[in-house]
């Protein structure tokens, strides 16, 4: 099991990368009054057929016909469901996969979100050819990051160059703080 929800998101997004996705959308939405945290990952990768889809939440599903099957999905499902939350997965062969997990945040077994900024940062930096869309929301406040927009503004300056990488880190950190409405100087 993972100690942070953000590590589950990284792990699920790694599945999308292995599935050959060119666009990956990640959403983290907190509804404080309902004490719910929803995380979602959607990709346009190779997807799964009905049999793989049915088996992928079973940790003992041992098909070696695809590398998309492993412990990552059962882990996420268990970590959301053990808080009284829910798990949803849908996939279509050749179209992509979408996964959504809902956590009940005041349940004693609910793990913290953790460093979601580090998850998004490392995904963007390590996968410059993949388009990432990220949305982080708390109640009615939110911010987004779209790497296609970044690419358009940057031309051929790589994301992994020092200044751009530092900008991505700060952008994620500062905007999350403001969305969380913690006090900033």
């Amino acid at each position: 099991m993972f100690p942070e929800i953000s590590l589950h998101i990284l792990d699920i997004a790694e599945n999308s990368i292995k599935a050959g996705a060119t666009r990956i959308e990640i959403e983290v939405l907190r509804r404080t009054a309902e004490r719910k945290l929803t995380v979602a990952v959607q990709d346009n990768g190779c997807g799964m057929d009905a049999e793989q889809l049915a088996g992928c939440t079973d940790p003992f599903f041992t098909s070696r016909t695809t590398r998309r099957v492993g412990l990552g999905i059962p882990f996420l499902k268990a970590s959301a469901e053990c808080t009284g939350g829910s798990f949803f997965i849908d996939s279509q062969k050749g179209r992509g996969t979408q996964i959504r997990a809902e956590y009940v945040t005041d349940h004693i077994d609910c793990i913290p979100l953790g460093d979601i900024g580090a998850t998004v940062y490392s995904l963007i930096l390590m996968n410059e050819a993949i388009g990432f869309f990220y949305r982080y929301g708390v109640d009615e406040r939110q911010f987004t990051l779209d790497t296609d927009e970044m690419r358009a503004l940057l031309g051929d300056v790589p994301f992994a160059s020092r200044e751009v990488a530092a900008f991505i880190r700060e952008y994620l950190e500062e905007n999350q703080k403001e969305t969380d409405q913690e006090e900033i100087l």
Binding site: E149, L153, L154, E163, F167, E170, Y171, E174
Partner: peptide
């Protein structure tokens, strides 16, 4: 923080 800063970079 806005992506506009990337223009300057």
């Amino acid at each position: 923080k806005s992506l506009e800063e990337l223009k300057a970079i």
